[in-house]
């Protein structure tokens, strides 16, 4: 086996396709599951930030301060350090610190605060007049959230989750390097450590393709729902 030189990156007959398929599935699984959880937690956190800002009540101010502080802290911890920090929590939550399932807590906790800020910006960007109009019609707070805030900011929410998901794909590769499975794990163990450059190359190509697919899907959905 020729492990040196540029050509070694393209000797794809050295690739174990069953393993590659399995790793691709793990990466997609980690990405999709964490994306769904990030969307839910992000919208909830973003909503809390939006609803408690500019409020005069002391309770709202405290909630806003606490959530904003948590969001800022978890956004600023580098992902690779966050995984290590969360090892005990992961063990308690998932029962293991190895495999794709073990990657979920750190993926979600690192990406949800980032998405929460995007959600808050999306709500802030809404025309205040529309919210006032709904209030004038006698809408409850909950009705305003479900019938005005979320549908009216949906293009921004979708493009926000697209951006977040693409950085999640990068995170899954990083998580893979320390044992979470997926393409990152394969590229690191079977590619880098086993000096099989073609595996590293193929894993990279597949990750790029996955990123392209998610970006394409996100853009298509935004185009479909944006009636402005």
């Amino acid at each position: 086996m020729n492990n040196n030189g540029f050509a070694s990156f393209f000797e794809f007959n050295n690739v174990d396709w069953t393993k590659m398929g399995q790793a691709t599935w793990e990466t997609v699984w980690m990405t999709v599951v964490s994306m769904i959880a990030v969307a839910i937690f992000g919208i909830i956190l973003g909503l809390i930030l939006f609803e408690t800002q500019n409020s005069n009540s002391i309770g709202a101010k405290i909630i806003n301060w606490v959530v904003a502080a948590l969001v800022n802290i978890f956004r600023s911890i580098p992902f690779i350090i966050l995984i290590v920090l969360l090892l005990p929590a992961t063990q308690a939550l998932v029962g293991t610190i190895m495999g794709p399932r073990a990657a979920l807590p750190s993926l979600i906790i690192s990406a949800a605060p980032f998405y929460a800020r995007l959600v808050q910006i999306a709500f802030d960007d809404l025309d205040h007049g529309v919210i006032e109009a709904a209030k004038a019609m006698g809408a409850t707070r909950w009705q305003i959230v479900t019938k005005v805030l979320i549908p009216e900011s949906s293009p921004a929410l979708v493009s926000g989750i697209t951006v977040t998901t693409i950085s999640l794909i990068g995170y899954t590769a990083m998580a893979g390097a320390i044992g979470a499975g997926g393409l990152g794990n394969l590229a690191y163990l079977d590619g880098f450590q086993a000096s099989n450059n073609a595996v590293t190359m193929m894993a990279t190509i597949i990750i790029v393709v996955i990123v392209f697919i998610f970006q394409f899907l996100g853009d298509a959905v935004v185009k479909k729902i944006d009636k402005r």
């Binding site: 025309d127 529309v130 109009a133």
Partner: peptide
């Protein structure tokens, strides 16, 4: 009670304030 009362008072706006998604 306020929301109930608002149902009986319609309002129109300078910038229309329609929901673009509907």
């Amino acid at each position: 009670a306020l929301r109930e009362a608002r149902l009986k008072i319609g309002m129109i706006f300078q910038h229309f304030d329609l929901l673009w998604s509907r």
